[in-house]
Simulated scan of single mutants.
Amino acid sequence: MSTLKRVAIVGPLPPPAGGMANQTRKLGEFLTEEGLEVDIIQVNPAYFPAFIGKVPVIRAGFRLIQYLVSLKRQLKHVDVVHIMANSGWSWHLFAAPAIWVAHRLNKPVVLNYRGGYAQTFFEKSWFWVKPSLRKCQKILVPSAFLQQVFEQFELHADIVPNVLDQTKFYPMEQKVVNEQPHIIVTRNLEDIYDVATAIKGFALVQEYFPQARLSVAGTGPELNNLQALVLQLGIESQVTFVGRLSPNEIADLYRAADVMVNTSIVDNSPNSIIESLACGTPVVSTNVGGIPTLVTDQHDAILVGIENEQAIADGVIKLLQDDAFRVTLIKNGQNTISKFYWENVWRNLQQHYLKAIAEKG
C-alpha cells in the first residue's frame, strides 16, 4: 500500500517574491499543515561564501555543486519528490538534475511545470528535455494551456491549479467607485509584462477620470524606462512606483484598488489575476497564453489584445462607469477562484502523489 509521510519540494523561495517562489513557500506550509514532513530544497539560496556571488560563471558552478549535494542528502529520506520547474536555463540547472538524482535514488517524481514559454522552449530543446520528462511519474501543470502544450509533444499532464492563500486574499465589503479611482499593476517590471502599455492606458483613462491614481507594484530592469515614460506623459503626480510588496501588503493593495490591469505578452496562469479576483477587484488583462482558460471575457474579467493601450483604457473605463457590470464580474470572479482553494487543490494533489509512489514502487 502506498504511503505518504514525507515530501521534498524542489524550487525557489523568496526573495525575490516571484510567482513560483511564493507557490513553493505556500505549498510547503500547506503540506505541513496536513501533517506531512516537508523538506524544501531551495534552488536559489544565498551564495556561500558570500563573495562568490560577485564572480560571474564561477558562482553558478558553486551553487550547482551545493545544490547537487543537497539533493543527494535530502532526497534519500522522502516518499515523493515535487519539483517546481520552468523553461530555459532554470530547467537545465535545477529541474533536470533533481529529476535524475531522484531517479537514481529510486524516488518518485512529481514534476510541477509552469511558464508561458514552454512551447518555444520545447521546440528548441526537446532533444535534451524529453529524456528527463520520461523519468517523471507525474507531470502537473496549473492550466489547460500548458496541458495542451504537453499534448503536442505526446506527453500527458494533469492540471493542478496554483494555491491561493485564503487567509490573505479575500474580499472586503463592496466598494463604490468615486472620482479618484485607484488602478493597480502588480507584475514584475520586465519586458514580457509590458507595463508600459498599462501606463499608456492609464494616461487615456485620465481623460475621463482626471483624479485617477495608478500604483505599480514590482521591481525589475524596466523601472527606469517606465519612470521616464511617466514623465514623458506628464502623469508623474498620479503614478506611484511602490516597489516590491510582501504578500500581506499586496493583498491590502488589491482590496484598496478599483481595477487591476495585466498587460503581459507571454503568460500561463498568473497568480496576480487569481489574487485580484479573490480580493474582489475586477481585472482587465491581455488574452495571451493560458489567461483565456483561466478567465472568460465579459464574464469574470475583461480580456483584450496585447500592446493595445486604447483597449486597456476602454476596459478600465467600462468597469469604472458601469456599476452593474462591475458587480457581476466581481461576483463571477469569486466563483472562478474557488478551485484554487487549498482544500480543493490538496484533494487533487494527494491522489497524484499516491499514484506516483505506487507507480515507482
Results as ranks from 00 to 15, higher is better:
W89G: 12
G61N: 09
V78D: 05
L71C: 04
N106C: 10
F94I: 03
S87E: 12
T120H: 12
A95W: 07
T120N: 14
V80E: 06
F122P: 00
P45W: 11
N86L: 10
N112F: 15
I52T: 15
F62K: 11
F51H: 05
R73S: 08
R59M: 08
T120R: 13
R73I: 07
H82I: 07
Q66W: 13
A98H: 04
A85K: 02
A85R: 00
V57H: 12
V69K: 14
I99N: 03
K130R: 15
L75N: 05
G115P: 07
V101I: 14
W91F: 12
I99L: 05
I83C: 04
D79R: 04
L93Q: 13
M84K: 08
L93A: 14
H92F: 14
S70E: 15
R73W: 08
H103I: 08
P56M: 03
K76V: 08
N112I: 09
L75I: 07
P56F: 02
L133S: 05
K130N: 10
I52R: 05
Y47C: 04
A98P: 04
Q74M: 12
R114T: 10
Y113V: 15
G115A: 01
Y67M: 04
R73Y: 08
Q119E: 15
S132G: 13
S125F: 09
E123V: 02
K76Y: 00
P49H: 02
Q74R: 13
V129P: 03
I65D: 04
F94Y: 12
G61W: 13
V81G: 00
H82V: 03
V57Q: 10
L93G: 06
L64V: 05
A102L: 02
W128N: 09
E123P: 00
R73M: 09
Y67S: 02
P131H: 04
G115S: 04
R104N: 15
S125K: 06
K107H: 08
